[in-house]
Design a protein around this nucleic acid. Structure first.
Length: 485
RNA sequence: CGCGGGGUGGAGCAGCGGCAGCUCGCGUGGCUCAUAACCACGAGGUCAGAGGUUCGAGUCCUCUCCCCGCAACCA
């Protein structure tokens, strides 16, 4: 039983965006879940290291692009560490392995790639082609350079995407390639139905020196996104590597909604063209807003994963973004909402349930838990939610259990049982049920909040209560260190 | 008529044909094992608007208004 989950790789031009981090969070949660279920799991992350933006940034910094990307990759790696994202494979598109494999794939696509001329509006000042709309909006004159756009021809390689229309429709409609959520499937089907056109997949090397050379034509380099999409394959050491043979095809690809077209249309077409099995499933998540606004440097509302993790820890970060950011739609972050979730749910409901249970066992039973009830737990709701990538719902239903436990404690009133000599046995049963519930909760929580789950399990696992040093989700500390905003 | 999402108590959301529900916040009460935590009860909604289908509509259909996102080879 193998499971391969892949995440879109961020462009290595600077610090990773919190949107990238959310990608990893979903992937990591699924990876841990599948591992828990006994699957052998591969989880790939990486960095996209070619293209004009990186080339320009490197020039600005006065260093060669090879060197520039080495300054960015550690930031991406650090981003994973920050939130406890444990990828098994890391794709670097400037690695020898990737370059060689990408060229192999290009050749594998055979006649689907052909040379043709691209004709468009070009601004000599900007040194780039402009879209029809942009040209129209500016009345045919580039506002930056105050020069009219020129009609220009350029030789490019093209990918015969148009010939995959029918096969893509069939693949997606049949569910052989599943697109989640349903409305994204509708969306991409509409796009495909209006007709996909062939797309340019290379650029003249003169204009874009930083890329992978087209095999057999060193005047052209591959378009960045084309070879970037190949990372999911090349990272497994395509075509002969053991990992490729074991893990391909991808079971679940995770992308943001901005990437829908690339990953739901172009990418599967490329795979078909190269004669490879198509990925099985694509999960498209939404974007994040801050205080209801799009995150933007201009507005100045950019929130980084680091700020949040530094203050509250990786598990609190994971908790908020998995539960309170909608898995399907766009989600919002704000400090007050985050802090409310932290205090009410993590500290008061979960943390306190652990604490009161541990304290009562120490006080009433001398720390000895005794016989656990072998009560059956219903985990169907969590499994169902995860099967649909509804991380938010999955945590909702785990929290139903947390609340249920607190209610149970209040109904049974162990502190009263403790006063009655003839209720000793009943008391032990009640407390054992609490422990069994908490162990169950910890088990369910493992993929979502790995550290927290391990801490809870450690308190009760041994049969004797081993209190946590400090507190799960300390409230006071946080209140002190974060004055009201 | 480019494509998609959304408009439900103060806030955030669920419900998608059968008594309007959840969390937060607010009010009242209970409890004392616990991280000033926990539990119960309550107030608060003409489900964006109009029309239609139906025994019955947030829920289906039509139209309108208002938000948001995506796309238009330029990853």
């Amino acid at each position: 039983m193998k499971y391969y989950v892949t995440t879109s790789i961020p462009y290595a031009s600077g610090n990773p965006h919190i949107g990238n981090v959310i990608d990893w969070l979903y992937a990591d949660t699924i990876a841990r879940y599948k591992k828990q279920q006994g699957f052998e799991v591969a989880y790939s992350a990486g960095s996209d290291e070619h293209g004009s933006k990186i080339y320009e940034k490197a020039q600005e910094a006065g260093i060669p692009p090879e060197q520039f990307i080495e300054t960015v990759v550690p930031l991406i790696v650090a981003g994973h560490k920050l939130i406890n994202s444990e990828y098994t494979h890391f794709a670097r598109t400037n690695s020898k392995q990737h370059i060689a494999a990408a060229q192999k794939l290009w050749k594998q696509m055979g006649d689907d790639i052909y040379k043709s001329k691209y004709v468009g509006w070009y601004c000599v000042g900007c040194e780039e082609f402009k879209t029809e709309t942009e040209v129209k909006e500016n009345n045919g004159v580039c506002p930056l350079h105050n020069k009219p756009y020129e009609r220009l021809e350029e030789e490019n390689y093209f990918f015969k995407l148009s010939s995959y229309n029918q096969r893509l429709l069939q693949l997606i409609e049949s569910g052989d390639f599943e697109v989640l959520p349903e409305f994204r499937k509708t969306e991409i089907l509409n796009v495909i139905k209006t007709g996909l056109t062939d797309i340019s997949v290379s650029r003249p090397k003169k204009k874009l020196p930083w890329g992978i050379p087209v095999p057999g034509d060193n005047t052209q380099v591959m378009y960045v996104w084309l070879e970037a999409l190949m990372n999911y394959i090349t990272v497994l050491d395509y075509p002969d590597g053991a990992d490729f043979k074991k893990f391909w095809p991808t079971d679940l690809q995770i992308v943001g909604k901005d990437n829908l077209r690339f990953h739901a249309a172009i990418y599967p077409a490329m795979l078909m063209s190269a004669g490879l099995p198509v990925l099985k499933r694509l999960f498209v998540h939404g974007h994040l807003t801050v205080n209801g606004q799009k995150m933007s440097k201009t507005i100045g509302n950019v929130v980084t994963a680091k700020e949040v993790v530094d203050k509250y820890g990786a598990d609190a970060f994971r908790y908020y973004f998995l539960r309170h950011v909608s898995s399907y739609e766009d989600g919002d972050f704000s400090w007050p909402t985050f802090e409310a979730a932290y205090n009410n749910e993590l500290a008061n409901e979960l943390g306190n349930a652990v604490q009161r249970t541990a304290a009562m066992i120490q006080r009433y039973l001398g720390g000895q838990i005794g016989q656990l009830s072998g009560a059956e737990h219903d985990t169907g709701a969590v499994e169902q939610a995860l099967a649909e990538c509804r991380f938010d719902r999955a945590l909702d239903s785990i929290w139903d259990k947390v609340r249920g436990l607190n209610q149970y404690i209040d109904e049974e009133k162990p502190w009263e049982l403790a006063k009655k000599e003839n209720e000793k046995e009943h008391l032990q049963e009640v407390l054992a049920t609490q422990v069994s519930d908490l162990l169950q909760i910890a088990h369910l929580l493992t993929p979502f909040l790995p550290d927290t789950a391990a801490k809870i399990a450690a308190v009760f696992e041994a049969g004797t209560v081993k209190p946590i040093e400090g507190t799960l989700f300390p409230k006071d500390e946080v209140a002190k260190s974060t004055p009201a905003k």
